[in-house]
Amino acid sequence: MARRNTWSEAAWILGFAGLSLLMLVPLLFMLSTSLKYEQDVYEYPIRLIPASATFEHYVDLFTRPGVPMLRWFFNSAYTTFMVTGLVLLIDSLTAFGFSRLDIPYKRPLFMLVIASMMIPFPTTLIPVYVFLQQLHWIDTYKALIIPPLAAPFGVFLLRQFFDTAPKELEEAAIIDGCSAFGVYWHVILPVSKSVMATLGIFVFMGTWNAFLWPLIVTHSLKMRPIPVGLTLFNGEFWAERALTMAGATVCALPVLIAFLIFQRHIVRGITLTGLKA
């Protein structure tokens, strides 16, 4: 598609520049509202670039009684860190087993894991909630961290990758007397950094952004992660839009930064899952 027609290229660039501005408006509006003085928030005509800016709402966000923002931030960070780390460890062990080791019944077991990806998330929500309640795990970090580890996506993605990795190094390692775990640790993991980064960034974003799951398994204000906590502003603090937008900015910033750093891995992950289908 590399027909270089200058006029049509100029038209596309112009059109996309306009579209880009439009796509950025919600984020700009969020940022600009969060930086406005209270009296400027409801001024008309609306200014996308505030006349004068202040950080007072960000300070307010972390100090206001009744808004445990610091705790929400910790909840999100802790949950995300634990889920991402554990998924990388558990899924890579499993995918390695499925891909390389001689294990009875591994083929039907793998088929079962893959088939479970067809079950819509809301379908198991009710029974999982009942389990958590029986275990008295509702409103705990365990409920936020442990059930999401059973998601099959990572096992699927990593096995795909391990299946295509060359076997020569491994064979050499086995001849040198390396155990199965040694092969996993010293041979497979070092060559899988890129796909592990891809999986890691997906799990990081998925966990940091999760909404329905934490909405259901946490009840108290102090156990909420940021995205769910933010909706508090839609109710109780409705009048304080600048505070709300400051909260949204704080929630958006870590993932936007991660996205800019790991964009290559994200794109690769998406195209991998898309093309394999």
Partner: peptide, 13 residues
């Protein structure tokens, strides 16, 4: 990459 929590409150505004 944004959470629906962020998208939701921003679009609500």
């Amino acid at each position: 990459v944004l959470s629906i929590g962020v998208t939701g409150v921003v679009w609500g505004w």
